Computed example of a mutant assay.
Amino acid sequence: MLVPCPLDRAARRPPPVAARATAAAVPGARLVMIEGMGHTLPGALDERLAAEILHHTS
């Protein structure tokens, strides 16, 4: 399962340590942190997100 979870590094919400702990607690999870990402999933990241989904499901 792939669940995009926006992490606002500027606001530090949720804290990166919490994101890492969550990923570590989910079997098979892989945390992908995208620098400059806020609380939205901008269209400019569609290709990157599609690549992450393909990587996860292949």
Score class of each variant (00 low, 15 high):
52 E>I: 10
12 R>D: 15
47 E>D: 15
14 P>V: 00
37 M>W: 02
4 P>V: 13
26 V>L: 15
25 A>R: 08
15 P>K: 00
28 G>R: 07
24 A>Y: 01
21 A>W: 02
22 T>R: 03
42 P>F: 10
2 L>D: 10
37 M>A: 12
34 I>A: 04
28 G>K: 02
45 L>N: 11
51 A>P: 06
24 A>S: 01
35 E>M: 04
35 E>Q: 07
37 M>F: 00
42 P>M: 12
3 V>K: 05
13 R>G: 02
54 L>N: 09
42 P>C: 13
28 G>N: 09
57 T>W: 15
12 R>M: 11
17 V>Q: 07
43 G>I: 12
38 G>L: 14
11 A>I: 03
4 P>H: 14
17 V>E: 09
49 L>N: 06
44 A>H: 11
48 R>E: 15
13 R>P: 03
51 A>K: 10
55 H>Q: 12
41 L>R: 13
38 G>E: 09
26 V>E: 05
7 L>Y: 12
56 H>S: 13
3 V>G: 08
21 A>I: 05
21 A>F: 00
31 L>Q: 01
12 R>E: 13
8 D>L: 03
25 A>D: 11
49 L>E: 08
8 D>S: 07
55 H>S: 13
19 A>I: 01
31 L>K: 01
51 A>T: 13
57 T>Y: 15
48 R>W: 06
31 L>N: 03
33 M>N: 05
54 L>D: 14
4 P>C: 13
36 G>L: 00
10 A>P: 00
22 T>D: 01
15 P>N: 06
31 L>G: 06
51 A>R: 14
20 R>E: 12
45 L>C: 04
57 T>C: 12
7 L>F: 08
2 L>N: 09
27 P>F: 01
17 V>A: 14
26 V>G: 03
20 R>S: 06
3 V>A: 14
12 R>I: 07
56 H>W: 12
20 R>F: 02
48 R>N: 06
23 A>K: 00
48 R>D: 10
39 H>M: 05
41 L>H: 07
10 A>K: 05
22 T>S: 05
54 L>M: 09
40 T>L: 05
20 R>H: 07
29 A>I: 02
4 P>R: 11
47 E>T: 11
49 L>F: 14
4 P>E: 11
